[in-house]
Design a protein around this nucleic acid. Structure first.
Lengths: 190, 190
DNA sequence: CGCCACATGTAAAAAGTTACATGATTAG
DNA sequence: CTAATCATGTAACTTTTTACATGTGGCG
């Protein structure tokens, strides 16, 4: 007796394919690219990136080539295959029918904070507000960078950057909403 | 510079302790309680709840007792211990210094959607907007329920429900922000 | 009779995080 | 010389998800 097992596509696989669809890259470059873009809504450690790249290479979605240049460390450059492009297109063309679940530690903590010292709760909220203000500031910077579009590797940069900007807009809205909420909670605790 | 939190002392443990601190409960009841409250910002499957309960029982944070009533299935009722209360207090009193990372599949998809058929993207966004509108409606209902506070088990319900309401307020703000953002993206795609 | 709600668990796998490990080049 | 950046990986572990597994009682 055998089982039919179909596993939930891990998002990082499609993020890697998505970026490799722009141009061939190493795991290191992918990590940096993700860190400065999609990590704000889907992050990954380098260990996960390297292992996933090897996995999708075995699946035939990418190929890799070791590049050795004088006076530089060895680099393994990954290139998307036609199968990889198909899988990527299949995924992006199948509309998402669910909402991603939220995991917010601060909300869990606040939910159970009724018996805590009020000033401690307020201090914690203020600290969190500062963190979110930092994130907001960094998103505002990214927003400017995207409109100056310096990512020369990508074809049709005008259109691509438009969609990147949408995600930054969400980030800004989210952080503004978060900060407003914290301020309101602080008001109501007092 | 802000840091993202990558590992936690498994949040579900503290959620279970948090609820058992209100009153003794079975795994089944905890699952239902979580589903109708904290699951909106930290969810768990029943398998994780049952195994975590057994784990924290071995750690001495809870005790369990099997209750057999006529004409009812066997129930294992968990009760928090004094050690459990200490561990819970220790956790809640230590302020959170990091931000929970976001994992939003829709944003990943939108980021890579520049080459897609525009109408497909808009349809997907409209579908997502409907989902978020449903969630928003359910949060509005919860908001009313909390102000009518029917949770008789909890002592000092007035104060507790205030903190529960904060998390619902965030949920409402979040969904409103999300819907606004989707509407704006749809506008900009056209 | 079948389905739903009640009720509890385990097994197996996937997904994600932390730590371990190594070594090159470059800028101060 | 030393710290940072470049560069790639594996090992161990935790966390989360999916599937397997079982049984009762009540209702239509």
């Amino acid at each position: 007796m055998y089982k039919l097992i179909y596993y939930t596509h891990t998002m990082i696989k499609f993020i890697l394919l998505g970026f490799l669809n722009y141009s061939p890259m190493t795991g290191y470059e992918l990590k940096q690219t993700i860190d400065s873009s999609t990590s704000h809504f889907w992050h990954a450690h380098h260990s996960q990136i390297y292992t996933t790249l090897r996995k999708i290479e075995q699946e035939g979605l990418v190929t890799s080539e070791i590049i050795n240049e004088e006076g530089r460390p060895e680099r393994r450059v990954y290139t998307i295959t036609s199968t990889g492009k198909e899988i990527l297109k299949e995924w992006i063309d199948k509309p998402l029918k669910t909402i991603s679940p939220i995991k917010e530690e601060l909300l869990v903590r606040l939910f159970f904070s009724a018996q805590r010292d009020r000033q401690s709760v307020i201090n914690e909220l203020k600290y969190q507000r500062d963190l979110h203000q930092e994130v907001l500031a960094s998103y505002s910077l990214i927003q400017k960078t995207i409109s100056n579009h310096k990512h020369q590797v990508v074809a049709d940069i005008e259109n691509e950057s438009k969609f990147w900007a949408f995600t930054v807009d969400m980030g800004i809205k989210y952080e503004q909403m978060y900060i407003t909420w914290i301020n309101e909670v602080i008001q109501h605790i007092n």
